[in-house]
């Protein structure tokens, strides 16, 4: 089995650079090269975002300093949705093209997406108490974000419960793709229904309703969350590649130090 896989991945790849990196063996070192730049970007952007958010952005007129939770709340909520869509995308690619790497990508993204969903809910609760007067309410925005968190957990639990990785991938892909309908529901919930949660401060169609330094801080933190997510997902996908391809020659050579990556 490993021989046929290896010969397939070693096929000449002139001109087909995208498919060249679709094999774990060639993607592994590429992911390794991208790791450090991602980490540096994540740390630098976080420091810049925190400095802007706490020392440059002014106090809010109505909410006082409690609004400073926005610098993690909004980036976390955005990432929880973006990561889910990315996960569903890789699952769909995996189902259509039957590529091993795409399923590994979606497995690598799920825990980080779940983490962002949890952070969005947690910071939302701590922000809701001083401003609205409650930690939690069953409003459409909050409930649909909670469902997103459960979808991540369901995806991970299902994958963990099935031993055969191919079947686990297919079962997980079903949740990921079906659950993707929840993402637009979260996004538009504040427009479609009466909710306690306010509307979006930043959208594609309107100019942002935030003072510019506040907005800068939030966008820096959002970019930091992107960089962090890329870094940690690359790290995890490398671990998953080793776990799943442990029978192949390239992983065995890698683990015994016969090749470097």
């Amino acid at each position: 089995m490993s021989d046929s896989q290896l010969s397939a991945t070693r096929a000449p790849s002139a001109g087909v650079s995208l498919f060249h990196y679709a094999s774990p063996q060639t993607f592994f070192p590429l992911a390794g090269k991208l790791l450090w730049p991602s980490w540096i970007a994540a740390v630098a952007l976080t420091l810049a975002g925190l400095y802007t958010g706490f020392f440059i952005a002014p106090t809010d007129a109505t909410q006082g300093d409690s609004y400073r939770i926005i610098f993690i709340h909004v980036p976390a909520a955005w990432m929880s949705m973006v990561v889910y869509l990315a996960m569903a995308f890789w699952c769909a690619v995996g189902l259509v093209f039957n590529t091993r790497l795409s399923f590994m990508m979606s497995s690598a993204l799920a825990p980080t997406g779940a983490l962002w969903a949890f952070v969005a809910l947690w910071t939302g609760a701590l922000w809701g108490k001083p401003t609205w007067g409650t930690y939690w309410a069953w409003d459409a925005r909050m409930t649909s974000e909670l469902i997103l968190f459960f979808l991540y957990c369901g995806y991970m639990a299902l994958q963990a419960a099935i031993d055969d990785p191919r079947r686990a991938d297919r079962a997980g892909a079903l949740i990921a793709i079906v659950g993707a309908v929840n993402v637009p529901i979260i996004y538009f919930s504040v427009k479609w229904w009466n909710t306690l949660h306010q509307g979006a401060s930043v959208s594609l169609t309107q100019s942002p309703s935030m003072a510019s330094t506040m907005l800068t801080g939030m966008l820096l933190m959002a970019l930091a969350a992107w960089a962090y997510t890329i870094a940690v997902a690359l790290m995890r996908v490398r671990a998953i590649m080793i776990e799943r391809e442990r029978q192949t020659d390239w992983v065995r050579q890698l683990a015994t130090g016969e090749t470097k990556a």
Partner: peptide, 9 residues
């Protein structure tokens, strides 16, 4: 102190 919102922030 964060303007009285230290615990939440």
């Amino acid at each position: 102190h964060m303007g009285g919102y230290g615990f939440y922030v």
